[in-house]
Every structure is written in C-alpha cells, then in structure tokens.
C-alpha cells in the first residue's frame, strides 16, 4: 500500500506555451509600415476628434469608424511615468540591475497617450510634462520594435 501511495502524482508541470498567429489587422499593419518610414500614424474620430495611437478602427464613445489618418509626434509630453526596479518575465518578477523608465507619452497631435520606454536619462529627472522625442530603429525591421524608445528633447 505504501508503495502504491508513492506512485500518486502530486504535481505535473504543464507549460501553456502555444504559438498563435495573430492577424494585426489593417490598422496596426499601416502603423508598422509608417514606423519603417520614421512616421507615427494615428487615426482620428470624425466626431469627437480623438486621435488614437496606435491607430484603431472604432471610437466606442461616438460609435464611429475612425477613418482619417494623421501623423503625430515624433515629439511628445510625458503624462505619467513609473520607474521599474524589476521586470516581469513570463509572469516571474526579476530584479533589474539598473532601473527602467516607462512613460505614458501624449505625442504632439495625439489625444491618447502611448506607453513607451524612455532611455538615456536619470530616473530622478523623469517628470510629468517632460518633452521627449521618438527614437526609431535603423534600419527598420518592419515590426512594432521600429519605434525603439523615447529620449529627452535637447
């Protein structure tokens, strides 16, 4: 009987790690193409004039299709920020050697803030209202990573 009990499986590790093929849809596709040309594209609501970046199709407030495309940035203002002392990798919290700066940035011409990394400055200098500028990956990789990060203007 004792032998049998030891055979009971108490724990089984089953990673939930499938590959999915997400279609980004025409809006994100055009946004990615724009990044390749160092342009940040947004869509505008014909009714409330909301300018959304990354672009999306529907304005849920007005029940309208956002079909007008506008270019925004590359400069913008820090709206909100946090300094990360950890990173979360696959759900596990890991300490960072040097802090990472994360900011909500309202790009010039946009009304919806964009979450992005800010680099090249001391954590204590990161403040609301700070002007920052987009840095693009060169040469472009045709992915969302083409908008690499933001840096302080000047």
């Amino acid at each position: 009987m004792a032998d049998k009990l030891e055979r009971v499986v108490v724990e089984a590790q089953v990673p939930l790690d499938y590959t999915y093929n997400y279609r980004v849809g025409p809006y994100i596709e055009r946004y990615i193409k724009g990044l390749g040309d160092k342009k940040i594209l947004a869509t505008k609501c014909p009714q409330c004039s909301k300018v959304a970046v990354p672009p999306r199709k529907e304005c849920g407030v007005c029940n309208k299709i956002m079909d007008e495309w506008v270019e925004v940035g590359p400069e913008g203002v820090v709206d909100n920020y946090t300094v990360g002392h950890v990173k979360i990798e696959k759900g596990l919290v890991e300490n960072l050697e040097s802090p990472a700066l994360l900011a909500m940035i309202t790009l010039d011409g946009a009304t919806v803030p964009l979450l992005a990394e800010v680099k090249g400055m001391a954590p204590t200098d990161l403040k609301k209202g700070l002007r920052v500028k987009a840095v693009f990956t060169d040469p472009a990789e045709d992915s969302l990573a083409d908008l690499s990060h933001f840096e302080q203007v000047g």
């Binding site: 999915y20 980004v24 946090t82 990360g84 979360i88 992005a116 990394e117 969302l144 990573a145």
Partner: peptide, 15 residues
C-alpha cells in the same frame, strides 16, 4: 491586446 501590447511587451499588471 495581442496585436500591440503583447508585442511591444511593456505593459504588465504591476506597472
């Protein structure tokens, strides 16, 4: 959003 936020991999519950 798997077409954007999960691709740029910046946002998580704690930040």
């Amino acid at each position: 959003n798997p077409t954007y936020d999960r691709q740029v991999d910046l946002l998580n519950e704690v930040n």
